[in-house]
Structure formats: C-alpha cells, structure tokens
Design a protein around this nucleic acid. Structure first.
Lengths: 251, 251
DNA sequence: CAGTGGTCTAGACCACCAA
DNA sequence: TGGTGGTCTAGACCACTGC
C-alpha cells in the first residue's frame, strides 16, 4: 500500500481513530460485534497485525471488549460515580446535570472479604507513624456490580484504634472505616483524599479482571480525628475506564 | 524456548514485570539507559518483538521513556499535585506527609493562549443551559513545567457573564476563572469537580506531547454563584502519569 | 469442527541520534 | 555511518466459542 505522503501519524493510530469515529457515529452500536480482524484489515487496507494493534487501543480505553473465540464487541459501559466530599448538599446545588453520565450502582455486592494483621505498605506505615515492622489491622474486600468486579478496598487501622471494635470480628462483613472509628471513640472529622492513575500490578489486574494495558485509579483516604491525629487509611483501587470521580464543595 | 508448564501469563507481561522489578530494585536507576531491544530479548529469552511489546507497557505508565535513535531511559518523574478543595487548612491538618511524593512546580510557564467565541462541546452547552448553536466565550491555554507541557486548560463562560470583563481583552494572558467571575460581579461560591480518565484525542495527544497508549485526566469544574446558577465551566486535561489529585475536607 | 481472538516469532524498512 | 527505537507485514500456533 502506498502511504499518503506527509502523513506522519502511524497507521494503527489512524485506524483506531477511524474505528472510534465509526462507533461514535453510530455505525457500530453498543453491543454490536465488530468485523473480524481480517475483515477490518481488508477494509482499512492494513495488515491483520496492524488492525489488531488498533483494536488493542480501543480495548484499553474501554470502548470495545474482546471475547475469545467469539468476537470484538462495542462496550455498553456507563461508569460508576465515586463521591469524595459528601454530597448532602446536592439538592441545594440543584440540577442533576453532570458532565458525564453515570450508573447509580443498583446493587453492590461484596466478595473476598478478609481481615489480617500485617505490616502495611511503606506509604501507609509512614502515614500512620509506625515503627519498622509494626503491624496494623488490615481489612480487604472486593465489590461487584452485576457480577463484575469494580473496586478493591483496603482499610488500615493501627492496633490501638482497632482494638475492641467490630472490625476484629471476622464475620462482620466489609469494614466501614467511618463506623469503626466511631466505635473506637475517635470519630473522623477530617479527610485527605489523594488519587493517582497507575498500571495495576498482577494481583490487582487479576482481582479486577481488567484487560492488559488498562489502568487503575488508586485512591487513598487519610482520616484525622479531632486531635488532628491520623487514625486510619482507606485505599480504593478502581478500573479507570469505569469510574468518574466527583467532589463538591463551597469556596 | 520451552515455556514453563501451567504458566498462563503471556511472556510480554512477565517480561514487563521483570523489567519493572529490575527498576524498582535499583538495578536500573532513574536516567539510566536500558539495554537495546535485541539485548533485552536475549536476556529474557524472547523475540525482539516481544521485548518491544513489554517496553511499550512501561512507556505507557511512564516508568520509561523511549528516545528515537538513542535508547530507552528510566524516567525520573515526580508527579505534579492538583488541588481540588482549597488547602488553606493544610497547616492545621499538620504533617506534610503524603501518600505519593510530588513536585511543587517551581515555575509554571504558559503557552498557546487564545480566546474565541464558539459553540462549546455538548456537555458544556447542556451544563450552561444554552440553546443549540448559542456561543460562549472560550479561553484556551497550555501550561508547561521545565519546557514540558503538563496541562491544557479551557474556560467556558456565557456571553452575558464574560461581557465587559478582562477575559475579553486578548492581551490578558491565561484566564483566571475565579477572578473573572468576581469582575463580572457574580463571584463563585460553590464548585463541582468531575474527573474522568480517558484516551486523548489526537489534538490533546499532540499538544501534550504524550506517547501513544498514555491516558489523560479530564477534569471539569462547574462553578455556581450565590443564586445557585451555573456561571462557568473550567476544563483541565492532564497527563495521567504525571499528576496526583488531592482533595481535603471536613466531615 | 470451523472461526475468532490472542500470542509469538522473524524479518524488513524508516527516522533519528551520536560518534 | 552504524546503532537504536518505531512501524509494518506475513505467517504460525494455541485457546476458546458456538454450531
């Protein structure tokens, strides 16, 4: 194939853009099956490998989903909304209109709940001011919507805070850090939220069942009590393609 | 190469993990040049194509940077911090300790500043309650740190709000939406922040100079005046690998 | 069993950098 | 000018789905 002169954009990128355009134009609708790799290659005048490469980009950003042995399908994905600041004031600030549409998570199921005593990751240990080797109470759980895993939550509490609260009972379901802190007699009055986008490690990728090349949102919430002490950390790992973060606050 | 039986993880993923481990173990330090593709392929017992595929993953998440004709280098990347809620209270909430380290952006330069009257993207038009075809005043700018572009900012204001303010003067530098709203006599008292991770379109990718496969953080801030009316929208597009979002608030 | 996605390899060509 | 990253192609093999 003779390349158009002066076009410095690689073929697989142009092909990916054309495919995205075809999808947003409605030529392929959510749930539709795309033509096979060879058919796409023929249609766009590239080799099968290049068509495959373009498809990979669409899989990474969630516009498309490949099902082995079956085909590549346009995703019907309305993201979930993750609220930072409490949005009790939403009614006051009126219109429910949002920049992006989202799904209100009709039923959130829980899975893989466990509680352990371990040394936390270095960043958490330093936040909690722990001595090297000191352990915390760690609670892990996985949340699912319609059978699909959507987020992994880990709660880290110093032993003296967790002692005697319901989080120590293994039958108590997923940890609610705010409730546990109230139980401990040291309710949280302040939070700092930090969010990062990163590649999942193999454990995250496995538990979230996300395709290679997909990224995760890694959120840490650091809780302070009335004495300005850090008393707990909550980490939430989410598929970056299926979440919208929202914060609302007065100036 | 005989594959280990029962290993269902693809080679390029294992190779990528081994490379990441080698980097975080300090075998390759920030700024170091990695061995060439062929050398890596030989070292890990895979073909050059597979080694290249592994390297692509590392480029996407920012751990590594390829320089054409020269080599692949370990990135020395400290992310920038993007504050949502004003962090005036930080001193009160004490320790500067954070989950992730960050760079305090010593000098932020501006670039590609322009002001136009156009119809905004559909989502913004609907937020502002515009009739179809109605135009807004749009201000665009690009920010750089040490010569590298880091974020693209667009401000959208209804004509009646922007009228007579400094944003209409083309020489006024990048728009400061809060200041303009004060000028207009309708200071913002409330903000809603929405953040999404998505693939950049070709324009974004070009202006931010980010490698293929890298994602962007797309943030919208919706400003409300004292009458609970939406009076402006600010969109910020950032390289997802080089930013940390932070919000801090009382419960 | 046939078709499809996913992985892996081998090799060619170009653009770019550094010596 | 030689080495390097980046792109593109062709073809082989496997796992899985659906008939």
């Amino acid at each position: 194939m003779t390349d158009a002169p002066g076009s410095r954009v690689p073929k697989y990128l142009r092909t990916a853009d054309l495919l995205k355009a075809a999808i947003s134009d409605g030529r392929y609708r959510p749930g539709d099956r795309l033509p096979g790799e060879d058919a796409l290659a023929a249609e766009f005048g590239v080799s099968a490998g290049t068509a495959l490469r373009a498809l990979e980009l669409l899989k990474q950003d969630g516009t498309v989903e490949g099902r082995r042995g079956s085909g590549v399908y346009v995703q019907t994905l309305t993201p979930l909304r993750r609220f930072g600041t409490s949005h009790v004031l939403e009614a006051q600030w009126g219109s429910a209109v949002r920049v992006w549409p989202s799904d209100n998570a009709p039923s959130l199921d829980v899975d893989q709940v466990s509680t352990t005593r371990t040394s936390p990751p270095p960043a958490v240990a330093s936040l909690l001011g722990l001595a090297p080797g000191e352990t915390v109470l760690r609670s892990d759980s996985r949340f699912l919507v319609r059978g699909r895993p959507v987020k992994l939550v880990s709660v880290f509490l110093p032993q003296e805070v967790a002692a005697g609260t319901s989080i120590e009972r293994s039958d108590a379901g997923p940890a609610d850090i705010r409730a546990v802190l109230v139980e401990a007699g040291r309710p949280a009055v302040h939070v700092r939220q930090e969010v990062r986008v990163r590649a999942p490690d193999s454990t995250d990728a496995d538990r979230l069942a996300i395709p290679v090349g997909r990224f995760v949102l890694d959120e840490h919430r650091v809780y302070f009590d009335a004495g300005r002490q850090i008393i707990g950390v909550e980490q939430t790992i989410m598929d970056s393609a299926s979440h919208v973060l929202e914060n609302e606050f007065d100036l």
